[in-house]
Amino acid sequence: MDKSNRPDQGQNIPRGAVAHRVKFGDKLRSWSNHHLEVSVQSLQRMLLTPVATLMTLAVLAIALALPGFMLTALQNIQQLGSGWDTDPRIALYINDSASDERVEQFSLELMLHDGLRSVELIERARALQDFSEYSGFGDILSFFDSNPLPAVVLVLPVDQSEQGLLTLQAELAALPEVDEAVVDMLWIQRLQAYINLAERFSWVLAGLLGLTVLLVVGNTIRMTLESRRDEIIVAKLVGATDAWVRRPFLYSGFWYGLLGALLAWVLVQGALWLMADNVNQLAQLYMSGFSVQGLGVKGSLLLLLTGLLLGVSGGWMVTGRHLREIEPT
């Protein structure tokens, strides 16, 4: 419109944009109000179909809970393993026929071995003392005329790989002074390897289930989007922006993600709680201070954020594509 030669008021003069310009403050307030309103409405819309919503949420919760539970369980097992000194040692049980001096000499020789980091000699006398002190079976020793325990040399290998340990074990076992060479803690290393594998597996699973969450949220929102086609078209015809049209669907994604994650949290904590009594009892039998750890603050936040992120992304993914297709014709 030509604004220059047009009086502000008059019978037959068009009153253009001047008359109904919206103030910036109003726009901002209206924008935040709209966010609040739309977020509440999206939630209400979900509650209109409680059964369908609950089923969707259950799928999301299980998909989020499964990796959450597995990773928490693995963390617990790792915590269990970390209670031990995990450096693998080889215990060399010395032949009874070797004299104390020879044993001493032998341990000094081992110190020169390139493959060993440290060497510790436990003489027969000390072994006897340790045994009677810590085992609780000290009385048994009184049945023996002489010290039945062999001297032990504990060596810490440089190469801690399983293959290296086994080679070294064979080498040391072949020495004439050595009766038997036992690799200690090898099982912990194996356990660690299994945990690593399980962790890797859990992350792959988490990725796949995360994709599931994305698709489930996306598909659910796509269906609401189809059911609100008329509304979208009318809104676009009277000047709604893409962001305005998209907002309720993003909030649906937000709610699905949040509620799904909360439900998943309950599932994980519930499952751990169910197992805690048994595990703790087992730990007590082994005199271990181990107790089952839940998700914790960090894990809970991670679960919640993951749920939210996947929910909103699911909404974003679908609305981005489909809203462009829904145009008034």
């Binding site: 919206v22 709209h34 009318v234 009277v238 000047g239």
Partner: peptide
Amino acid sequence: ALPLQISGYDPVD
């Protein structure tokens, strides 16, 4: 009210 809501009018107005 839809066009006004979309344009961001104050609800009272």
